[in-house]
Nucleic acid binder design. Structure first.
Lengths: 239, 239
DNA sequence: ACCTGAACACCGTTCAAGT
DNA sequence: ACCTGAACACCGTTCAAGT
């Protein structure tokens, strides 16, 4: 009992005293691997080799923990953006904004719990506004009006939140089943869904490798992203 | 005690025995008014004038309750769509699809907890696929390829989820404060946000009534929606 | 069939106590 | 300053018992 306790401590909380940063890092990792709903004060404490009450010396409580997790994600987005190649002077604003959106999406994909957490929190951290401000700056320098830039912030922001929570992915229907069972499952489902059935048929036949997921969410994200960026560019030149 | 108990029952659970429907209706109303996080088995039971364990005779548990809430929302979307005026033969597919998206959005606005719940649930109810199938049917009849329709399903679906959880609304900064305090609050915030500050300035001055919320999320939703629908139409005619 | 009370394992949080 | 143990009010859920 003592042994296993010490082993746990040695394995999961190897060095140094507790700190807000370390608590948040372990919390994020726990949410990534087992889901946000297992992140409880008590479970988090055991993972850190400490008692639940110790956390209160570094965080104001569970709510503060969730706020901290949002902060962590935003920080990661900033780091990801910082790694981007510097944009050339007078380059295309679309290219620059596109890179940033893709960077933000990468972070959201690493932390699938983030979009719904960010969307349900009542206080928006300052870092989010900073990201929006930089994006707006890029657009204004590119010649967009403040009004159009404003609309774009809403479009792109909601897209970043919505696309990770994607609901429509028919290729997850037969997940984990053997091909025959998956086929049967799908056939039954497709009975009442004539258009979707025809669509899947059409999509599968236009690919070389039908076994590969035909519903590539990265491709679809970039498609919509470019659609929006091009639409903004069109509105810019016609106004 | 007896009296207040019976009073409660009379007030909140006026007629008939418990049923899945009645439980879900009260649960949705509770989530609407006080937030999804107060919807617990025990609280829900007291609101229904019953013991927590009685709920298990109508629902398989908390998880089943959440699934049921998603079902309720989808049903509401279907009802809302059913109330739409019948579309004329050979009408514009964009108009038809636009109406449906706006109907779905109305329901999401009534239940702000719905998008993140739908997005985090692991099983997608059949009703969602039905809605997607109908939307796809409208697009295909309008001349879109299955591939383009597929992309559109993703774009519109993620937009419906993302736009309700909207994070960027600068006009909520000084919420509930008197004008002077709100001004100060905003000025402080705007210090590090030059572009947003300029944007707010520009937007406010282009309106007649600057006190009214200048960030109208309905307008912005429809703007993006039309942007997407027009983009799909353009891709249709050029392919 | 439908509802209940007691019980169990878990949760967030407070507080007085340790070092 | 930082951590802890006991305690409190709350969860979801099981189970045997009531009608």
């Amino acid at each position: 009992m003592q042994e296993s306790g010490r082993f746990k401590l040695a394995r999961r909380a190897p060095r140094g005293p507790l700190s807000r940063e370390r608590v948040l890092a372990v919390a994020a990792a726990l949410a990534d691997t087992e889901g946000l709903y297992v992140v409880t004060m008590r479970r988090l404490a055991t993972d850190l080799g400490v008692e639940a009450m110790s956390l209160y010396h570094h965080l104001p409580g569970k709510d503060g923990l969730l706020d901290g997790l949002v902060d962590t994600v935003i920080t990661e987005v900033n780091q990801e953006i910082g790694r981007l190649p510097p944009s050339p002077e007078g380059g295309d604003w679309r290219r620059e904004l596109r890179q940033r959106c893709l960077a933000a999406r990468q972070v959201m994909l690493r932390h699938p719990w983030a979009p719904s957490l960010i969307g349900t929190r009542s206080v928006i951290p300052f870092g989010v506004y900073l990201l929006f401000d930089e994006a707006l700056g890029i657009m204004v320098r590119g010649g967009l009006s403040y009004h159009l830039g404003h609309q774009a912030l809403h479009s792109l922001g909601s897209m970043l939140l919505g696309y990770v929570q994607e609901v429509f992915s028919p290729n997850s229907v037969g997940e984990g089943l053997d091909p025959a069972a998956a086929e049967a499952e799908f056939a039954q489902l497709a009975g009442g869904l004539p258009h979707i059935a025809a669509m899947v048929d059409s999509e599968v036949h236009s690919h070389d490798d039908p076994t590969l997921g035909w519903c590539d969410s990265q491709t679809e994200f970039e498609f919509t992203l470019d659609l929006l960026l091009d639409a903004f560019e069109r509105r810019r030149t016609q106004s």
